[in-house]
Design a protein around this nucleic acid. Sequence first.
DNA 1: TTGTCGTCGACTGCCTACAGCATACATTCC
DNA 2: GGAATGTATGCTGTAGGCAGTCGACGACAA
Lengths: 242, 242
Amino acid sequence: MLANQGSTAKIVRPTTLRESVLERILELIIIGSLKPGQHLVENELADNLGVSRQPVREALQLLSGEGWVDLRPGHGAYVHSPTVEEADQLLAVRTLLEAESARLAARNPDKSGVSTLRDICLRGLEACVADDVDAAVAANSELHTAVVNMSGNRVLADLTSQVARRVRWYHTPVARHRGKASWEEHAALIDAIEAGEEDVAADIMRRHTEHTRQSYLESRAQHPEVEPPAPIRRRRPRAVSS
Amino acid sequence: MLANQGSTAKIVRPTTLRESVLERILELIIIGSLKPGQHLVENELADNLGVSRQPVREALQLLSGEGWVDLRPGHGAYVHSPTVEEADQLLAVRTLLEAESARLAARNPDKSGVSTLRDICLRGLEACVADDVDAAVAANSELHTAVVNMSGNRVLADLTSQVARRVRWYHTPVARHRGKASWEEHAALIDAIEAGEEDVAADIMRRHTEHTRQSYLESRAQHPEVEPPAPIRRRRPRAVSS
DNA sequence: TTGTCGTCGACTGCCTACAGCATACATTCC
DNA sequence: GGAATGTATGCTGTAGGCAGTCGACGACAA
């Protein structure tokens, strides 16, 4: 009976076709089935997903709004081709946004919010010592989300989540968590928020996210598996015929 | 011959119908022809603009990505209804982003960029003493854009422009420029950027945008013309018949 | 061999049409 | 008289289809 009721009273949206198409395409991009720079032919996607072109088109329009695909009028949609430079800039912006979130969260910390943070932190640490990487990653993003929400600035929260989603794309080849040290930083952050020390909280968060940025860059330097920009192929190589 | 060549080598895009529809709808929203909370019926828009529903739908999808309209699956598109709280948050985020832009611009200031800034600043000041409000406003946004571009962080620039566009929406009822004082702040900002004084530049920009935020809030307090959320009407009141 | 032009194929952009759904009104029952 | 249900209507979501357009390939000429 409670199956469909999200804990946060999320609206049970009448999931339209274009929404599910959007999510499936997004998943294909994230797992790498659709490669950066690849031309997304509407008919192919429609056939593969078993729908008509229309919902595919609309899903692509929405995805372009989130920076996942680039629309070239008259040419169609291409999977956004990430560069190291862009990843760096994205992580820099994330640092900026999240540090401000931490500052605002510390400006008026509420009891329940802080205790939520502690719960998540505890879970993350447990997952960490249990070597459950997936759970640790989940707890990590959950904690960051919780902090942004505590900021009370919804615009900031939306923007951050938007940026964070794109960052996740770049995280794929990176080691996913930095172990116990990361959670100690988290704990310190929560302390600062609870104590209302704005500058300290912002600084911890800034250094924390800056750290992941650095490790991303290093990892990227070691594995420069950057794909060439975009081999634009509109026709597939003709099969031997005649 | 140079008619179509923008100064910044902008691509001459093969303007599609949905693009022009998007711009026309956006204009209608900005000038207030389409009011906050209003239900955007696709057929009506299509008829009024002389196109079919398809490009209208796609334009609405794109507009939703920029926060101008809200899509409710199964219900259609509604003009985003701005609240004072959201405006405040938006302006706060803009302050954050632009201050960082100024910091980055000051980190490595290039000669040509700085001279461009000075040109714009001069024009703005001239427009100001000539009491040409429109020109002053234009110069103002041009200058801010130039600073963001000098930051060298394209993600930051994109995000800022996105936020700034939405902020413009809230500026409508506000006094549009603060006169000479504003341009003196601009001049000081440019000096700081040229001298490479990151902290100073960031601080000037922060206070500068914070000032406009304060004046917005005050103006809003005096003219609390906030519309009621959204009187959702899907059928127009039936005409007296029979 | 290299540059230019014509042809062809494929894909996008747009239009029209239909089905499903949500809302508002009218009617009936308690 | 009030509430619940049936019915009508307008709108959205989706499908299918057609024309325009862009790029690639091949032929021809220099």
